[in-house]
């Protein structure tokens, strides 16, 4: 039996290089979605939003938003194909992006 936990993850692009990043529980922006805080409660979501707003002010990130995701056996799967592509890199160049640098998410862009 796999454990599945649904929720939301805060993501953004890092300002200086545009890389996709994800907000962790410790308040760090990680390149890896599996490090992200997955939250359910409105209060927790609000906390992520507040952190992200701070990170905009300190010029670390830009274009932040929440995405739907679920944690399956400890790995985070973004709901949308678009977001899974952001956790990997281009599906047509698997030699590039996170999938090539050890920071990839665990789920393929398109499954099945």
């Amino acid at each position: 039996m796999s454990t599945v936990e649904k929720g939301q993850v805060m993501t953004a692009n890092r300002l200086r290089d545009g890389d996709a990043v994800f907000l962790t529980r410790a308040g760090i922006w990680s390149e890896k979605i599996d490090d992200a805080a997955l939250v359910q409660e409105p209060q927790a979501t609000a906390a992520l939003e507040a952190r992200a707003a701070d990170a905009v002010i300190t010029n670390h990130i830009t274009g932040q938003y929440l995405i739907d995701a679920e944690r399956i056996d400890g790995k985070i799967r973004a709901a949308l194909t678009r977001e899974r592509i952001r956790t990997l890199g281009p599906s047509v160049r698997t030699d590039l992006g996170k999938q090539a640098t050890g920071t990839a998410g665990a789920f393929a862009a398109v499954e099945g």
Binding site: G18, G89, G97
Partner: peptide, 16 residues
């Protein structure tokens, strides 16, 4: 944003 767009720089999924 308008300054970078004027210089042809867009933010995409993985980078600029």
């Amino acid at each position: 944003r308008p300054l970078r767009l004027m210089n042809g720089l867009y933010l995409q999924l993985h980078a600029y």
